[in-house]
Design a protein around this nucleic acid. Structure first.
Lengths: 105, 105
DNA sequence: TGTATAAATGAACAATTGTTCATAAGTTTG
DNA sequence: CAAACTTATGAACAATTGTTCATTTATACA
């Protein structure tokens, strides 16, 4: 007997769904997606560097970055006056790629 | 010469980043993730069916569903008294899988 | 037609996110 | 140590999302 449906193996617990939602929400913002993009190609960048590249005001960017760090997506290390952020949860790259690959977007 | 970085090919335009963010946001909620999960395995389900399975109140679920439909993630067709929803943008399955596969979640 | 069932809608409100601004905290260098 | 520079922080406010509830719309069927 064949199943009446696509049969995609995906059985997330409620807890896991909440975590997935949490990560998605943390990423779901143009500026934050841009940050992930940048850090996907750069290993690590300082706040002011990111700020200039993305043309986002320091404080606002800092809020975004620290939020993403808090939620485990980024990591940061200080070097002198600068603080360098890096992509910790590299899986989010794949997530973005999945959608970016959609032709209809 | 080797690049100083991971070199992930991902160059989204601002417009595309906004669209990706849009889809992520539309999915980033435990109930909506559960809906995607269900519809990944069921082809199509009526509102009351989903409502019972997920234990979410009719009106609230309807709001979620129509939002997802509006944003192109789901489609719906009426059959008699019921309205059946189906997954239109199947790519979101992959997106969720990407994250669900993370062992650390 | 009237009643029951299924789902959508819209207003009101709650909760969460996003943004701005002023200021603080850490670091370097003269 | 003071000045300059980089980033973080917190309060205030704006904007968006999520939820509830009452009501409406659409369909079936007695």
């Amino acid at each position: 007997m064949t199943p009446a449906a696509p049969a995609v193996d995906m059985n997330l617990s409620v807890e896991k769904m909440e975590k997935v939602a949490f990560i998605l929400k943390t990423t779901a913002h143009p500026t934050r997606i841009a940050v992930v993009q940048l850090l996907a190609n750069h290993e690590s960048l300082s706040v002011s560097d990111i700020s200039e590249r993305l043309n986002v005001e320091q404080s606002l960017l800092s809020h975004h970055l620290s939020g993403m760090k808090l939620k485990g997506i980024l990591s940061s290390t200080r070097d002198g006056k600068n603080i360098y952020y890096a992509l910790k949860m590299r899986e989010v790259i794949d997530v973005i790629q999945c959608l970016a690959a959609c032709t209809f977007l």
